[in-house]
């Protein structure tokens, strides 16, 4: 909000909420601000896990860019998709920092495997807590909350499925060895979104554009 209130962005007004900032400035500017704040300020203190955190952020950012394109194709809200993508794993670095700090305080020695297990166990719950705490729009909160179970999303099954597809597309783009193209084409979430094979193919043609945007935002 401090950056959003700077003269460069809002010369004539004072913004008091993130929602208001989004409404006034548009997602393009807000995402730029959010990323600058989050990455530029080195938000989390996780010694020894800096590379891991960087890759988590990179995946979140790629997810947001893919989810946005999927939403655009589906004539759904691109801002919700972008925000949900960006924040769906926000709990991961936060929980990691907490675990490391607690282990240090309690003088408990945890293996890397222990830490990853704890991280995987609690990251979703913390992500949901963060988007609620930050008073994100209702649809974003619901999409992030239902991320691991989009079939049971109350009113946001489409938005949640877009987030799921965005995350899988991001995984395929960043680490194709973990998720190949054939597996990508049979994702159940694609059926939920009613995306036919030629439409998926057409979306994947945007890979180079997404990579360029990702590099632009990461640099």
């Amino acid at each position: 909000m401090r950056i959003a209130n700077s003269a460069a962005y809002t010369p004539m007004s004072n913004l008091v909420s993130l929602q208001q900032a989004i409404a006034r400035l548009g997602m393009g500017v807000i995402s730029e601000i959010a990323l600058t704040a989050a990455i530029g300020a080195k938000m989390f203190n996780t010694p020894g896990y800096e590379t891991h955190i960087a890759s988590v952020w990179r995946h979140a950012l790629a997810t947001s860019l893919w989810a946005k394109e999927v939403a655009r194709h589906c004539r759904s809200n691109v801002e919700v998709a972008f925000l949900a993508g960006l924040l769906h794993s926000i709990g991961r670095p936060a929980i990691l920092q907490t675990i490391i700090e607690l282990a240090k305080k309690e003088q408990v020695v945890l293996t890397a495997e222990d830490i990853h297990q704890l991280e995987n166990t609690y990251c979703h719950r913390l992500s949901v807590a963060v988007v609620n705490l930050w008073k994100m729009p209702t649809l974003v909160v619901e999409a992030v909350s239902s991320y691991t179970d989009y079939n049971n999303a109350l009113t946001t099954s489409a938005q949640t499925a877009q987030l799921t597809v965005g995350a899988r597309f991001a995984t395929h783009m960043l680490t194709p060895e973990k998720l190949d193209k054939e597996t990508l084409f049979v994702l159940p979430a694609l059926t939920t979104l009613n995306l036919y094979q030629d439409e998926v193919e057409s979306l994947l043609k945007q890979t180079d554009t997404i990579k360029t945007r990702l590099e632009g935002l990461s640099s």
């Binding site: 929602q19 989004i22 409404a23 006034r24 548009g26 997602m27 939403a71 655009r72 004539r75 759904s76 809200n77 691109v78 801002e79 919700v80 729009p137 649809l139």
Partner: peptide, 20 residues
């Protein structure tokens, strides 16, 4: 039309906020 700032009649109701 980008369905983000410039909408058509199929996507206009997907706006997140009521615009000013």
């Amino acid at each position: 039309i980008d369905h983000e700032h410039i909408f058509d009649s199929d996507s206009i109701l997907s706006m997140l906020y009521l615009p000013s």
